[in-house]
C-alpha cells in the first residue's frame, strides 16, 4: 500500500512558505532593531541574515506560530550579542552618534549636542548585555519581564543590567556636562 511520498515535499514547502512569510513581515523591524543594537547598518544586515539562517535551521523548535516574534527576536538578539562580544575592541560609537545627529539636528546649543554625543558614545561603550537591555527597554519599550523572555535572562538580572547600564550612561552624561561646563 503506497503512500503519497509527495507529502514530504509538501511539508517542506509549507515550512518554507511559512518561514518566508513570517520573516518577510518582520524583516524591516528586525533589521532596525539589529541596527540599533549594533549601531552599524552594514553589520546589522549580516546579523539579521545570520539570525534568519539560524531560525530556519531551528524551525522545528518553534512550536507555536504566534510566538514567532519572541522566538525570532531572541535569536536575533543572541546573534547581535555574539557580534558585540566579538568586537569589544571596536565600538562603532561614531556611527551611532552620526546617525543621531543626521536624523535630528535641532540646533539647541553646543552643550546639548555634546551631551547627546556623549550619551550615544556611552551607549556604544556599554557592556553587550547592558546595551541590549537598554535598547530593548528604551527603543522597543519592553518591560523587564519582556526583556527577560527575549534574552533568556532572569527578570532580576535584566533589572540589574538596566540599572547598571543607566548608571554608566548617567556617569558618562555627568562627565560630559562637567567637561562642557568647564570649557565655558
Amino acid at each position: 500500500m503506497a503512500r503519497p511520498i509527495q507529502g514530504a515535499e509538501a511539508r517542506e514547502r509549507a515550512r518554507a512558505i511559512a518561514f518566508t512569510r513570517l520573516t518577510a513581515d518582520r524583516l524591516a523591524s528586525c533589521y532596525r532593531l539589529a541596527t540599533v543594537i549594533l549601531g552599524d547598518p552594514i553589520e546589522a544586515e549580516d546579523a539579521t541574515h545570520d539570525a534568519a539562517v539560524r531560525a530556519w535551521e531551528r524551525w522545528g523548535s518553534l512550536r507555536d506560530p504566534d510566538r514567532f516574534d519572541a522566538w525570532f527576536g531572541r535569536i536575533l538578539v543572541n546573534e547581535c550579542r555574539d557580534r558585540l562580544r566579538r568586537r569589544r575592541t571596536r565600538p562603532p560609537a561614531a556611527e551611532l552618534t552620526e546617525r543621531y545627529h543626521a536624523g535630528r539636528r535641532l540646533g539647541d546649543g553646543t552643550q546639548a549636542i555634546a551631551e547627546r554625543q556623549a550619551l550615544a558614545q556611552a551607549i556604544a561603550e556599554l557592556e553587550p548585555d547592558h546595551r541590549i537591555a537598554i535598547v530593548l527597554h528604551y527603543y522597543l519599550e519592553l518591560s523587564a519581564e519582556q526583556i527577560a523572555e527575549r534574552t533568556g535572562a532572569r527578570v532580576g538580572t535584566v533589572k540589574s543590567r538596566l540599572h547598571y547600564g543607566l548608571k554608566a550612561l548617567r556617569a558618562a552624561q555627568d562627565a560630559s556636562a562637567r567637561t562642557e561646563g568647564g570649557r565655558r
Partner: peptide, 23 residues
C-alpha cells in the same frame, strides 16, 4: 534622550538585498 538617540539610529531602510537573501 535615550529614546530619541535609539529611534534615530533605527532610521534605516531595509536593504532589498537582505530581503532577497532571507527569502
Amino acid at each position: 534622550e535615550l529614546g530619541e538617540i535609539l529611534r534615530a539610529a533605527a532610521d534605516v531602510e531595509l536593504p532589498a538585498r537582505l530581503a532577497d537573501r532571507v527569502a
